[in-house]
Amino acid sequence: MGFTNEQLERYSRHIILKEVGIRGQKKLLQSKVLIIGTGGLGAPAAMFLAAAGVGTIGLVDFDVVELSNLQRQIIHLTKDVGKHKVESAKETIAEMNPDVNTVVYREWVNSSNITDIIKDKDYDFIIDGTDNFPAKFLINDACVLLNKPFSHAGIIRFQGQTMTYVPGKGPCYRCIFRNPPPPDAVPTCKQAGVIGVMGGVIGTIQATEAIKYILGTGDLLNGYLLTYDALNMEFRKIKLSHNGNCEICGENPVITELIDYQQVQCRTN
């Protein structure tokens, strides 16, 4: 695979990095990342992955752009209000980087379709940009069963958290949070609010994890939960342990098929 003069210029700041170089940029252009949710987390993640030259980006979302989204979901513009988020995001990515093939899935993820979506392009890395617990557990379980690495994240008010799962190398989301809380036990961003830039901070970290995984460089948040308190401008990196009794990745897993804990409507942060 050769580079055009335009590509050499576009990715020049990557190519001069010893951790990337020509070989690493080729890896990025040949890689495939699936982003579930094109909201507050998925929007900045998609934009930075597209700018970085990730060759195939899959976008999953059935929601449409609302005016209240624009305070944080920066991949969408005012003219996009009423448009399906995946289509709006695809248009933005196309204008940003023509090297990127954007694949859209205009649907909610659930136990009947998530496996087919992940297998569709045999994605290398999955980014969870959802804001409800049934979807997060579903994404975790699908990735564990399919041996796919993924980045979890969540944001609310002035706080955010993220962790990375790599198959066989650390705890999964269910190791730390065993089961979803009861419905409505935890408020959503719509109910509690969220500072707009929070998605940018955490979503960009998710994109960074995807890029590092593809390149095989640096230390991932595998085995760690990174939390961010924007009011106090404080990051904390908390060591996590694999749970040998985890119901899906433990020594004697009891979850062998995907579960919908409730009607999953995977609205995004």
Rank of each mutant, 00 (worst) to 15 (best):
K136W: 04
I127P: 04
K148F: 12
G129D: 01
Q191D: 11
F150W: 15
C172W: 09
D128P: 12
F137N: 03
D131R: 04
P149C: 08
G168M: 11
D131S: 03
R157T: 08
T130N: 09
Y123E: 11
C175N: 11
P181D: 13
C189T: 15
S112M: 02
G168E: 11
R174E: 02
T164L: 12
P149A: 04
K119T: 07
T162H: 05
P167S: 00
C175R: 12
L146Q: 14
R157Q: 14
I114C: 12
K121L: 04
N113H: 12
Y165G: 04
N140F: 06
P187R: 08
K136S: 09
F125C: 07
T115H: 05
P149V: 08
I139V: 04
P183L: 11
M163L: 13
P134Y: 02
L138K: 15
F158R: 06
A153H: 05
F137S: 03
K190P: 00
N113K: 14
D124V: 14
G168D: 10
R157F: 01
I117C: 06
L145G: 06
G129A: 09
K148G: 12
I156A: 00
D122Q: 13
D128W: 06
P134F: 01
T188N: 11
C143N: 11
I117K: 12
Q159M: 10
K119Q: 14
